[in-house]
């Protein structure tokens, strides 16, 4: 069963911009689905559609087997939006308790207040909290009640390592008790560590969706290595057999498609030797999530280069 399903969903903004451009997305029940994509890809719009805050101009949206935003869905779906929308005059803990009461489960507030370390902010108003503290309050508000689906839009943005680890714990906790999480994030390691499924969107459309293994395991093996920024990828491509493709997939990380044979590896190593480059982590294997992400979102992200021969 799917907790949420979007099929060919379009969202057009009044200013002529396209929020979603035929998005297909499935959020499997009882699983953590990571939604990845560059800025402006449509992640937050998708969150808005699932939360019932943004109406789709076309397409089919189903949340817990019904239309989004209906009363039952609002009761069972908790959403943490990016612009947290916390009332600035409220005290941190008071707000968490209030939202828990609105969700009909006041008893769920205190454990979260303690887990997220909000007890010491009992008398602090939201406007006086640091960015990270605000994020924690916002997260607590998104976790109170007994939600079946929790939608988190960049919950760890601006959090320190300890805060991030608490958020990860919370996400795993929801899955353990059978809940579903849709996690929008820019952190690929977060997606790799937490997600059962990954969807990569760009330009308002889904570019790939599947389990981590499905996304990274398919296709041929590639060669990757880390080195200095902005190597002469065109030069390296010329040294390799016809049809090879060399790309600086992320700053200082190079991926080579065209067959990961021992001969190719040796050629790369020798090209590096000729150019005084230490090819750290040089190896052949299936691509990582980062490789897949950079490849699928290349044309939507500025500042990446590639060359083929």
């Amino acid at each position: 069963m799917d907790a949420a399903r979007l099929a060919q969903v379009f969202v057009a903004y009044p200013d002529g911009g396209r929020g979603l451009d035929g998005l297909d997305l499935t959020v499997g029940s009882g699983r953590v689905t990571a939604l990845l994509g560059p800025n402006g890809a449509g992640k937050s719009t998708a969150v808005g559609v699932i939360a019932g805050l943004i109406d789709a101009s076309a397409g089919a949206v189903s949340v817990l087997d019904g239309p989004p935003g209906r009363r039952e869905a609002r009761r069972l779906v908790n959403v943490m939006v990016q612009e947290d929308g916390l009332p600035t005059g409220a005290h941190a803990v008071e707000l968490v308790r209030h939202i828990a009461r609105l969700r009909g489960s006041p008893e769920t507030a205190q454990p979260l207040v303690e887990l997220l370390g909000l007890n010491r902010l009992k008398r602090t108003t939201i406007r006086r909290l640091s960015g990270g503290e605000r994020r924690r309050v916002s997260l607590a508000c998104a976790l109170v009640g007994n939600p079946e689906l929790v939608v988190l839009d960049e919950p760890t943005a601006g959090l320190d390592p300890r805060g991030r680890s608490i958020v990860w714990e919370c996400i795993c906790g929801i899955r353990e008790r059978g809940g579903t999480v849709l996690l929008c994030t820019h952190l690929l390691d977060e997606a790799e560590s937490l997600a059962d499924d990954v969807a990569i969107i760009a330009g308002g459309r889904c570019r790939a969706q599947g389990t981590l293994t499905e996304l990274t395991g398919g296709g041929e093996e590639i060669i990757t290595f880390d080195g200095p920024l902005h190597l002469d990828v065109a030069g390296l491509a010329r040294a390799l057999p016809e049809g090879s493709r060399v790309q600086e997939s992320s700053p200082g990380r190079y991926r080579i498609e065209g067959g990961a044979t021992p001969r190719m590896l040796a050629t790369v190593a020798s090209w590096c030797a000729q150019h005084g480059v230490q090819p750290r982590n040089l190896g052949a294997g299936y691509q990582t999530l980062a490789d897949v992400y950079w490849r699928l979102t290349e044309e939507y992200t500025e500042g990446t280069g590639g060359a083929g021969s």
Binding site: A51, G52, L53, R71, R74, R75, V77, N78, V79, V81, E83, D84, G85, L86, P87, T88, I99, L102, R103, G104, C141
Partner: peptide, 17 residues
């Protein structure tokens, strides 16, 4: 101001109509 800060939207995700 609550429209701009998203405070109304945050409430709109709760069971409150």
């Amino acid at each position: 101001f609550d429209r701009r800060s998203g405070a109304l939207l945050m409430l709109a995700t709760t069971p409150l109509s």
